[in-house]
């Protein structure tokens, strides 16, 4: 494959081994582990979409869950109102892509007109809240605050089978997003993150580029939402909430911002910890307070490893071979 030419041999082998392990593990694991891992894969894609925005474009979107939740609802509503078949799944994917690119376009047009990062953060926060509120009130379709349980296509019903679909989903999205980051457009996004004014003076229409970045992120987020909905067979307004956006933020922070792969590492870490804490609920009710731990983890990460796991790893590599490594960050991978 042409794609693989850019990856050096060691990385190639490492990825190969990882994939083999990931294909075997579910056969040995408990059902709950399989579900947890599927969740990790899907939320990794969601976090990668957030990284495209924050890590590569430097744009803080507090309404990012809007796309994620919408994806889950679009799937759920269509499966409920039409039928739970593969055809409808494909339809849900298509509608999610269209809906999210439109929503991102509108969001972008409102947010990217000027004003700073803070203004953008506030406006996106408001937009996200509007979406959440709409879902809560539109009871006839969304079942409001109770949430929407739905039936899914048979092919996804088997947990083990779905594990593989989630894994394939992660692989495909990683390849696509990696290509995007390595494209001329992706490069310009990095330039904008570094220094938007200078990018303007090179003649780049930075708002247009940011809009493209937002649309790519929105669509990716929406698709991960569809998958997440199928995993849970359920959609509720939490999926549209700021909390859900902050989850993506935490995952990318833990993993490493602006690294794409950091989102995968972060998702594995955060979801495993979250799962573990939930198991401790029976020991003491304090472990139900995920938000508390969420906050604590946030503080620890910001204080002790501001560049996340992938940042730490890169630093380690850098210490080993100082020169070659200066490209690692720049490639953004």
């Amino acid at each position: 494959m042409k794609l693989l030419k850019n990856i050096d041999k060691k990385t190639f082998i490492a990825i190969g081994v990882l994939l083999v392990v990931l294909s075997i593990v579910p056969h040995l694991a408990k059902l709950s582990t399989i579900t947890l891992m599927s969740r990790i894969f899907i939320l990794a894609v969601y976090a990668m979409s957030y990284d495209i925005l924050r890590g590569y474009t430097g744009f803080i979107n507090l309404g990012h869950a809007l796309f994620f939740g919408s994806g889950a609802y679009i799937g759920g509503i269509l499966f409920t109102k039409i039928d739970n078949t593969m055809g409808v799944f494909v339809l849900a994917v298509i509608i999610t892509v269209i809906y999210c690119s439109l929503a991102a376009y509108i969001m972008g047009k409102i947010v990217l007109r000027g004003g700073g990062v803070i203004a953008a953060a506030m406006i996106t926060l408001a937009l996200g809240e509007i979406a959440r509120n709409t879902a809560e009130r539109w009871r006839s379709v969304t079942m409001g605050a109770d949430g929407l349980p739905f039936k899914i296509p048979d092919i996804f019903r088997d947990r083990l089978g779905f594990y593989y679909y989630a894994l394939i989903f992660l692989i495909i999205m990683t390849i696509i997003l990696r290509q995007f980051i390595l494209s001329p457009t992706g490069r310009v996004l990095m330039a904008i993150r570094e220094n938007e004014q200078r990018a303007t003076f090179l003649g780049y229409n930075t708002s247009k580029y940011k809009l493209i970045g937002l649309q790519v992120a929105g669509i990716t987020s929406g698709l991960s939402g569809v998958m997440f909905g199928i995993l849970n067979r359920f959609a509720n307004t939490d999926l549209l909430s700021v909390q859900q956006t902050l989850n993506a933020l935490l995952i990318t922070l833990v993993g490493g911002t602006g690294t794409l792969y950091g989102a995968i590492v972060g998702s594995a870490f955060v979801n495993t910890v979250q799962n573990y804490l939930l198991d401790l609920r029976s020991v003491h009710p304090i472990f139900e307070r995920w938000l508390l731990f969420f906050g604590a983890m946030y503080v620890v990460v910001v204080l002790f490893m501001p560049e996340g796991f992938v940042g730490l790893w890169n630093k380690y590599l850098k210490d080993r071979r100082t020169k070659k490594n200066s490209r690692v960050f720049e490639k953004g991978l």
Partner: peptide, 23 residues
């Protein structure tokens, strides 16, 4: 290199290519 390359990319109007490798 990338600093200069981005300048040249701007000048040569590569356009909004999204899936071709920049290298």
């Amino acid at each position: 290199f990338e600093n200069v390359r981005l300048s040249i990319q701007a000048h040569q109007e590569v356009g909004y290519k999204m899936f071709t490798d920049y290298r």
